[in-house]
Nucleic acid binder design. Structure first.
Lengths: 339, 339
DNA sequence: CGTCCGTATGTTAGCGTTCACATCGTTTCG
DNA sequence: CGAAACGATGTGAACGCTAACATACGGACG
């Protein structure tokens, strides 16, 4: 911007003066009231155009006592899932006429999350969407909910909390049953870190499917969502010849497992089958292409915004059914050989 | 939030009444003025605490004629780079006392980008950071810059435009020289799509390094950043036995290339070396681990915010030097065999 | 033909904050 | 010891908007 060029932004009064009407008429036009005669409206519109008028949201928020803003807190912005969630919430929010404040918290310490929530509250958001499905938030939510509308994005919400989610348990079950159907009987699990709800749900889905099939649980190793941790888990699992299949709690860890298996000379999928979770865009082009469980974040974000806006408007505590994930079969899992 | 529970949020006047002072004194305390006696300040602070008072940003913005907000427009929110950029800008902004409005545009059509910018302008951002290094923005920027401060995040900015960036040319040069040093003489390039500045710069870096070495340019194929397009390019390249090295313009495409090479029976790196760009977190755990060019988004975001705030405060048009990327050597590239 | 009503528009107040200035008590110093 | 200076606090107005009410103008109706 060239220095000194900008005069003060035009206000309704300026538009009104130019159009030869009162500021209230301008307000009516801007807000689409039908109590304005056609030619008056046209004059006002022309004045708005000429001055480049833009309604001042701060003034509006002040007098209406509503910010028109929704906040989304999300962790792990370096991962595909959270980023997509953010994008889809943003898009859905725009469509619903809300401004969305995206608040990524890179490292999930209680302190930084709480600071981020404070910032959101300072911004007077009308609802907080919590895209942080970590245990440490379950207490926080209750207290937060007394201040502002809250929607958790969560597959296993505490009772009475507004939430939306994708069914992580069902997804894990899908993956595990698939491996079972392929004839595998020792299916290891590389779990997400303790404390993460999705990690817990995926682990329980794995456990549940095994139990339903009457199959003993395979070894399990806890990772931290990173491919590095998957690699380390894979190296350990590779030493156990009874393991013919691995279900990893996300695609990154699955990819680390695959590398470790390669290095140990165990072929995927001929010797060991691997299934991931998420279906990141690259999953289909790994070597071998990764069989995984797809979650679709588009409808999730839209649903979250919908629930939030309903909560704001009617105060309803609606918990829509969990969205269903989907198994995407590719080459990284195959029938158990030599069985 | 329990319906009907909330009274109106407390205002300065409420705090003032409780503390037995005027609203102006409360204002002074909240803004850290030193012209308040210690015991008065304590009384005010206590009242703030008791009422859970929060300063109303809208009212403040209205009277100060400043929103205290910075907007970041970024495309490709599904990719690692843009997401990290967003996170780092957000963090740096917070630290600098600005609210950051993150505006991801999923599909880069002119219409949606322009709508996103309008939204940012409606939010009265004091500066727009443009994390969209696409050609189609170069015209837009000029016009936008007459309205609001603009900072491009861009490795090859138009003259006179405030910008920050990572040196894409240098990164590509690094990668190509490395392959050259390894003895490769036919180095193919899988380029990013036409129109993207980073794609252009990386391609030119490849070209430049070859030229400097007096080596003929290898085949080049244009992808679209996706692993799918990398796969398709790789399949084509695999048919050309003279190609012993491939430099892909990002890690996703590199990974697609590797899969295609695998499928064609050409070993990586024994038969063909592959180098990517970005150093996404999974790159180190692919099979084989990917040699790539790392860009660090942390300092980039911080720099962008710094330039923006300086522009707001002093109107300076500063263009700091491009940040240097770094070659990360892993296993996917090796000396040319049989040479 | 005067009254009533509906439609289009204008007027006033107030949202919660900051800024500029006014006030008041207390110290300082000739 | 009185005036000046300073430090702490208060008062009033204004930012740009919307809500509520007031007004003006016309046509319908008895």
């Amino acid at each position: 911007m060239v220095r000194g060029e900008s005069k003060n932004a035009p206000s309704m009064a300026d538009v009104a003066a130019l159009a030869g009407v009162s500021h209230q008429t301008v307000s009516r036009v801007v807000n689409g009231s039908d109590a304005v005669r056609g030619d008056t409206r046209d004059r006002v519109l022309a004045a708005i155009e000429e001055l480049g008028y833009r309604r001042n949201k701060s003034a509006r928020a002040l007098v209406m006592r509503r910010s028109g803003r929704l906040g989304l807190l999300y962790s792990q912005p370096h991962l595909y899932g959270p980023s997509m969630l953010a994008a889809s919430v943003h898009q859905a929010g725009q469509k619903a006429g809300y401004d969305i404040i995206l608040s990524p918290v890179p490292h999930l310490e209680a302190a930084s999350a709480e600071r981020a929530i404070e910032a959101l509250l300072d911004d007077a958001v009308e609802a907080v969407l919590l895209g942080v499905s970590h245990q440490s938030f379950e207490d926080l939510v209750v207290q937060l909910a007394s201040t502002v509308e809250v929607v958790m994005i969560h597959s296993d919400p505490p009772a009475g909390v507004r939430s939306v989610g994708i069914d992580q348990y069902a997804g894990a079950e899908l993956a595990t049953k698939y491996l079972l159907d392929l004839g595998h009987r020792t299916i290891a699990h590389v779990a997400g870190p303790v404390g993460w709800i999705d990690a817990r749900q995926r682990r329980e889905g794995w456990l549940g499917a095994l139990q339903d099939a009457g199959v003993d649980r395979g070894p399990e190793i806890f990772g931290d969502w990173s491919s590095r941790s998957g690699y380390e888990a894979g190296a350990e699992l590779a030493r156990d010849p009874s393991v013919t299949a691995v279900f990893a709690a996300n695609d990154s860890m699955a990819l680390g497992v695959i590398r470790a298996l390669h290095e140990a000379g165990r072929r995927v999928p001929q010797d060991v089958s691997v299934v991931g979770f998420d279906d990141v865009p690259d999953a289909a082009y790994l070597w071998p292409p990764l069989t995984t469980v797809r979650q679709d974040f588009e409808p999730l974000g839209a649903l979250a915004v919908e629930v939030a806006t309903k909560a704001i408007d009617h105060g309803s505590v609606e918990v829509p059914p969990l969205l269903a994930p989907e198994l995407v079969v590719r080459d990284s899992a195959a029938p158990r050989s030599g069985g």
